[in-house]
């Protein structure tokens, strides 16, 4: 077969698959979002954004992402650096650290619920130690800070490993000679991390951050398990519109808003961490 056509023929099946199962449903959702049965309209968007819960769920989603992602990034960098320096047992440690990746987000939420709920581990421990007289309902509207903390902890515990594996792979690609050169020319371990590891890790940081940030805006099951309706987030609202209020148009509108935020942040991350021409390894 003609070598010029062959590549296109080879990617044809996957292209068709994506068009059929992703592009087409996406167009349907977009159509639904921009119509109420009688032609093009922005009514759905007006409806969802003017609802009193919208600003709160928007704020909660952004706040959670802003709290969780930087901590995950710092932790993943620290863990990746530690793993990369290990000579023995490296794979074992990596496997153990990535166990949470194998657990679904709802299960992760339930594990942390078992810790924080009224009859949970934390209460048992606190009353056992005499810190509290009787078990307290920590995950209630009286303790919004604890609800936030529990959700953030569960998210950090659950999803740091996805960044870790990407960063470990990235660090492995940096040739050892650069570190040796930096050491000979007087860079301390911290300076080597700042001046060699971080800048040379930019492509992996991009991938890890884009992935994590998008997932952070899609947070749903962990919040549902731990916060319920106490802590509304955008994805929870989408679910509520679709299945509780049976308003598919509004659900589609919020879904598109989440998509827009995700695209915006993705572009921002790609821009901030871009590698100048000629400056890659």
């Amino acid at each position: 077969m003609n070598a010029r056509i062959l590549p296109y023929v080879l990617i044809l099946p996957v292209t068709l698959f994506l068009c059929l199962f992703f592009l087409y449903p996406f167009i349907l959702v977009a159509q639904q979002a921009f119509s109420t049965g009688s032609g093009f309209t922005l009514d759905n968007f007006r409806d969802v954004t003017s609802h009193w819960k919208f600003p709160i769920s928007m704020k909660n989603t952004l706040l959670l992402a802003a709290a969780v992602v930087p901590i995950q990034l710092a932790l993943a960098l620290l863990m990746a650096t530690m793993v990369s320096r290990m000579e023995k047992g490296r794979d074992l440690v990596l496997y153990i650290w990535t166990i949470p990746l194998g657990i679904s987000d709802l299960a992760a939420g339930l594990i942390w619920l078992a810790i924080f709920e009224q009859s949970g581990f934390l209460n048992t421990m606190m009353s056992g130690l005499g810190v509290v007289d009787k078990p307290v309902n920590l995950l209630s509207y009286q303790h919004p800070g604890i609800v936030f903390l529990a959700i953030a902890l569960a998210e950090i515990w659950r999803a740091t490993a996805i960044m870790l594996v990407i960063l470990v792979a990235g660090i492995g690609l940096i040739p050892k000679e650069y570190y040796e050169a930096a050491e000979v020319f007087g860079a301390s371990p911290w300076k080597r991390f700042l001046r060699i590891t971080l800048p040379m890790l930019r492509p992996s940081l991009q991938t890890a951050l884009v992935l994590r940030v998008i997932l952070a805006f899609e947070i749903f099951a962990v919040v549902a398990a731990l916060g319920g309706t106490l802590f509304p987030v955008l994805m929870g609202e989408t679910y509520a519109y679709q299945f509780d209020l049976l308003n598919g148009g509004a659900a589609a509108a919020i879904a598109l808003i989440i998509l827009a935020i995700s695209i915006g942040f993705t572009l921002l991350i790609l821009r901030l961490l871009r590698v100048p021409k000629g400056a890659s390894i």
Binding site: E177, E180, A187
Partner: peptide, 25 residues
């Protein structure tokens, strides 16, 4: 000071920053 076999010229720095690396440190 050392010159390495594969040069170890830092790819993410300009020539100026590379030459000045040790001096900056």
């Amino acid at each position: 000071a050392m010159v390495f076999q594969n040069y170890a010229v830092f790819p993410h720095m300009t020539v100026f920053e590379n030459i000045g690396f040790g001096l900056r440190m």
